[in-house]
Design a binder for these strands. Sequence first.
RNA 1: GCUUGUAUGGCUCAGUUGGUAGAGCAGUUCAUUCGUAAUGAACAGGUCGUCGGUUCGAAUCCGACUACAAGCUCCA
Length: 659
Amino acid sequence: MNLSYLLNAKGRMIMIKITLKGGVIKEYEAGITVAEIAKELGAGLYKASCAAKINNQVVDLRTPVNEDCELAILTFNEVDGKKAFWHTASHILAQAVTRLYPNTKYAIGPAVDNGFYYDFDVEKPFTAEQLAAIEKEMTSIVKSGLEIERFELDVPAAKELMKDQPYKLELIEKHAGQGEKMSFYKQGEFVDLCAGPHLMSVAAIKAFKLTSCTGAYWHGDSTKPMLSRIYGTAFPKASELTEYLTAVEEAKKRDHNVIGRQLKYFCNSDLIGQGLPLLMPKGTKLFQILNRYVQDKEEYEYGYVMTKTPLMAKSDLYKISGHWDHYKDGMFVLGDETKDKEVFALRPMTCPFQYQVYLSEKHSYRDLPIRYGETSTLFRNEASGEMHGLIRVRQFTISEGHLVMRPDQLEQEFRNCVKLLQEIMTDIGLIGDLSYRLSKWDPNDREKYIGTPEMWDEAESLMRDILDHMGMEYTEAVGEAAFYGPKLDVQIRNVHGKEDTLVTVQIDLMLARQFGMTYTDADNTQKHPYIIHRTSLGCYERTIALLLEKYAGALPMWLSPEQVRILPIGDAQSEFARGVLKKLNAAGLRCTMDERNEKIGYKIREAQLEKIPYMLVIGDKEIEANSVAVRSRRDGDKGVMTVEDFIAMAVKEVTEKVK
RNA sequence: GCUUGUAUGGCUCAGUUGGUAGAGCAGUUCAUUCGUAAUGAACAGGUCGUCGGUUCGAAUCCGACUACAAGCUCCA
């Protein structure tokens, strides 16, 4: 290897200045590797090092440093350190699998948010039973402490090395045009085409666990073959692994799909069908509370007017809107196009319906914006494997709205939509769990979208500008837009870590043209309005699911279907207790009474398990003092107070929406 | 739609190598009127998701379908 570039004119080693964390500058000979620097800085740091950043670029520990730079050694405590750690774990997994199942073709194995996976092409997909054996093999690999070497090959040599690995060949082919060399990592007999970075040896992956196995399409493309994916996670210390696994188990206990059924918020019926949950009385009450809250807020604070439009329409409507061409697979079509004179379809979105309301009269620029709101039930024929509790269903009700406006009003209206949704998310307590995503179209997949590239560029840059003006933090995602325009998607994770869109605000410059929607401007010309499609609370079913998970079923007082339960000790207190019940109901509190002939401990246990915020125990002592003994589900016995004091306290908790 | 699992009384689960089902909770009835997370007893409740196959015999083995779970794809 020719290292002459590391020498100066006099043939002496060039010294370079490296700025470390905290601004410390150290001098090293050019060509020193990051790992050597880490070792020089301290054995502990070297042992913990996973990767590094040179001038803010993530690099492998083996990277030679040839010029002055800023250097940060990354350990498992940094995100990119974790990624390298997990990526190395995925190689150990692949090595174990290829040892146990020599005919395996291996595809890709990256780090993900909380661990790693590796995709394999095997004759029979892996099942959970096989994971233990694979883990055992992984353990022996880790114990062997194999060093991990990195090397590079040109394309022909890379292809020769990977000649038995079709997926790797495909990846090499994909990168071949870029003129770069292919990098490989080798640990013992196992070699993988891989961009890295990786740890120096397999020995650090002490605590790991294979968590699940499942199918996954090659390149995430459902037309490609399905591979067998194994998920796992790993940590530097066993205690951290245990902690993580315990946290995952704890999170699953909050699963709305479990507690929502347990607490009788919803159920399903085989006879009714998949993705069609039934809201039970408690779920319906919660729906009603949220719905009234949203409708009032939109009408009285944000200037919305309400519509109530049909749940279905003739195919003609969807042909104009573009749904027939772009969304038909997702719709429930009633009738047979080839035979019936008229074919109807249940609506998958509200937009074209509210547009018809707009179109029913002439509009002046002075009338705008018009903000249409609707508690709108929608129907989407999701593929059978996609349903999930209340989060993904075939019929759902959304806090829907369409704002029709002049272009000059767009920014203000958009800002108000975001403000509204943030106020609502603050009130219900989910604000801290949200992330924002600008969902853009995919210019390489024109089929999926209507409109011209110019219109898309305009709509997307309008949205980006507004978001930037607002100082919002957001990510951008290609190919996530609606077929008619870009979206600001408000994302949230469920207990399984899966991300879904909770709320969306969309800019639509296209559909007004399709439908011939106009207003008369000040210069007496007809113009197409801009439209914002938006939700505020999102869809009720999904939001209810996330609320149940957030609070593990113990909803805040203002959202609780049953806020107070009165528990008389015996029949003797019934009359007094009924009087208390009346007063509480009159104060607007959702209150019931448990008059059953049961012991007080039994009644308390039930109310506690049902997560009723307050229990009022009434015995002779309370009657005598004209009071109630208050027990909170959170703090237990809170002592005795007068009915009036309790009402004042409870009402305050409701009005202030205490979490 | 795809991959892997799962499916036993309202709920949570047992059911050993195939010999037509068992518990706890919930329910009903009776007794108990009780002070901060389960009073006691008795009774009732299931052709083991559906359909078909193998077998003298199927909850148990095989197949198809339906539903549920996690993941992939898709999506609010």
